[in-house]
Amino acid sequence: MGEQHRNLARKLVTALQRKDGDRKRRPVHTFGTGASGHFIPSPVAAGFCDAEHFRSPTPATIRFSNGSGSAVRRDGWSDVRGMATRFHLSDNKATDLIGMTLPVFFTPDGESFLKFAIEARPRPCQRATPWQKFRDMLRLTPPVPDPYDGETISPDAGAIAFAHQHDYARAGVFQAATIGAPQSYARAAYHAVHSFVATGADGTQRWVRFSWQPVSGVLTTDPEKDPVIDDYLQAELARRLRNGPALFSLMMQVGEVGDDFNDPTRAWPPHRVRIMMGTLYVEKMLDDVTTEKLSFNPHLLTRGIAPSDDPVLWVRKSAYEVSSGRRRGTPCPFHGER
């Protein structure tokens, strides 16, 4: 199983590498902004999950990122964003929670994601011709948006063609295509997507999914207006933190029998019980060198939180380790494990 995952993981990391990317950086979520802070659990959190950070205040390291793997930073372009959080527990232990602004993933397992990654490889993109646009309008289909200034390749056409054939990819691709750009990393909601098994203080086990909700609310830029500058998110966060911490509420959805526990392409309906697990205070910016060396892993869990059987979650364990090794990051928590 382990070696099989590693083989697939190597192929995945290679497939994700864009030709306009930088091999010394992450193949996706290439540009990041780091910060430190701390997490204060809510008074009810430990009842639902007995993990250490839900029992007592915990220092945290956070890396916000743009999803793209291009080596040019384009904060204003429509793109999925990431928020990786490491909770620093006692005895030098840690646990990670990795979220993104999409609530679902594109495929249900690693093999299908490999196909997706190959099919959605960025390809040359052009402004649609007036005739194509006119035809789309007559078909009541919104014309394909014009590429941004400087955008020569894009994964969109390949991703949409993939979703045409694979219904599981529809929700993710549709939302990714219309996601926009946040005004601030502190004004986006991030979802950890996979299901985990949380054990409460009384031993009760529940299927759960986590999301970070920004206390200052979600706000995207105006999609009608061309982005003014490529790089604004880092400076915005630094400015914001000078005036006080940026806060996120950690919400936990509780799944029910009949929900998809192992399929990250299916969101649970918004009617599930939601528990407020605590508040993250993002306080201080980190320097870029420290931030870019960090190696997160969605499998770095702790007593009280266990992984589901979601195959995507499992292949990520190896994929992040392979990737961190290739870019010579701080060794992944699973480095050397067989």
């Binding site: 789309d136 078909r139 009541l140 289909t141 919104p142 394909v144 949409i160 979703a163 045409h164 054939q165 219904d167 529809r170 691709v173 549709f174 295509a177």
Partner: peptide, 16 residues
């Protein structure tokens, strides 16, 4: 459900 392919770009028309 799920047995027919659907072009995502047609979703707005389906809604209209």
């Amino acid at each position: 459900p799920g047995s027919l392919p659907h072009d995502l770009r047609l979703l707005p028309r389906e809604l209209i």
